[in-house]
Design a protein around this nucleic acid. Structure first.
Lengths: 235, 235
DNA sequence: CGGGAACAGATTGTTGACAATCTACAAACT
DNA sequence: AGTTTGTAGATTGTCAACAATCTGTTCCCG
């Protein structure tokens, strides 16, 4: 009896609406860079590619707009959002504020087992840094910070943080400056952060994370200047 | 010639889609309490009331879901989101973090003219406090804090903050504890905050705002305990 | 030769109809 | 009596067609 594949597909549609699936797929494409900032997204194309009608696609667009990944212009279409350097600065500032909060909350509640996890990640990052392997370092860096936020167990904080990270992702895509803030420069800073967490020093963990985020911003700026960065039009 | 009313209506539709208008109207109703937390919202009802078809209504629902005001269950409908006390605690924590950032950023950039505005608001709040006029005090309090955020001129920060405030609004609606954190207790704190801003003391302004937000949370808790608060089911 | 009106094609906005699912109530069975 | 099954109504999910708007091109006129 052939049951597995159709059961899977039906089970999927029983719990998820087409809109949700379209939403996820578009989000994936945007964050993976298949759809680049500024690109126009055609309703009918997407509908055709995913074999659904335009209704679910339009609903997915609305959700993506609210979460800041696309911009809709009436009667003109939807575009992958372009994050200007000014906006990126704003986002970095807010992310720094959230990161400080993360440090403060986490230092109070973190458990040995979780600390060990972080140290494991840290070790992998140090290896990648020694090898100057930016392609390996970058996702580890993202995972490290995401894990920190996740460990706060504050769902609101996690959602707000991820949203900002997504938007910054768009900015890096637009400027082609992906690895800029993930240069091994920050290895020392990460270790200090974990130390402060281990000692349950709330204020220090918060301050270190705040400064780390702000320095990420500076590093990105510096990288852009070095590269005589191509200008990004403000939205 | 009768031109004014139809011109207005057409002009409105030329720039705004029906979805946007439905979105705004639903948001208004939710925040005004016409639609209470937990209420089920019927697509066809809304479509009928606003004289549009179900398409724009569904799109508006998606946007509202992304901004945290409603919850959608497949094949069951959409409901005004209920914010549990645990979630409210989370939100308060994040808001405190953002408020701290607001204080720090604002102390650096605030101008005399803007300080004067804040002092004007402060004065009105003191009057309302003296008169124990909570109905007057509550919106002033909201405006005061919103103005602070607005003056940072950081669009990302403003958006993130307002979103949280909206969600807290839902919580207060659900628990009927509206005035709890707006009791004149906090008048002194507000004055201190403005002073710190005036002296451009970034750290102090940040710390005061953080503590003010966390104390708002405590006040709300206390008010709920006093009232032997009705339990709110977690989502 | 340059600028603007007019047209055609493509794309989005909106609608109404159809299919799938859920909810509530009633009847039948143990 | 309690539980279960079945059915009818209501509600949501999806689709395809129609209307309105935009974009780019062509043609005409100065």
């Amino acid at each position: 009896m052939v049951t597995a594949p159709p059961t899977d597909a039906l089970e999927l549609l029983r719990s998820q609406s087409l809109t949700t699936l379209v939403h996820r797929e578009l989000e994936r494409r945007i964050l993976a860079g298949v759809l680049a900032p500024g690109d126009k997204i055609n309703e009918e194309d997407i509908a055709g590619q995913l074999s659904v009608s335009r209704g679910p696609v339009r609903e997915a667009f609305r959700a993506l707009e609210s979460s800041g990944l696309v911009r809709m212009e009436k009667n003109r279409g939807v575009f992958v959002r372009q994050v200007s350097i000014e906006e990126a600065d704003e986002i970095y500032e807010v992310r720094a504020g959230l990161d400080e909060l993360v440090g403060r909350l986490l230092a109070r509640r973190i458990r040995p087992r979780e600390l060990a996890q972080l140290r494991g990640l840290l070790k992998q990052m140090q290896h990648a840094a020694r090898d100057k392997d930016v392609d390996a370092y970058y996702p580890l860096n993202v995972r490290f910070h995401d894990r920190l936020v996740e460990l706060t167990a504050n769902g609101t904080l996690i959602a707000a943080y991820r949203r900002l990270v997504n938007e910054l992702h768009l900015y890096r895509r637009a400027t082609l400056a992906r690895g800029a803030d993930s240069f091994p420069t920050s290895t020392r800073e990460h270790a200090d952060i974990v130390d402060a967490l281990a000692r349950k020093d709330c204020d220090r963990a918060g301050r270190l994370l705040y400064e780390h985020a702000m320095q990420s911003r500076e590093r990105l700026h510096a990288a852009l200047d070095r590269a005589a960065a191509p200008r990004v039009k403000s939205q």
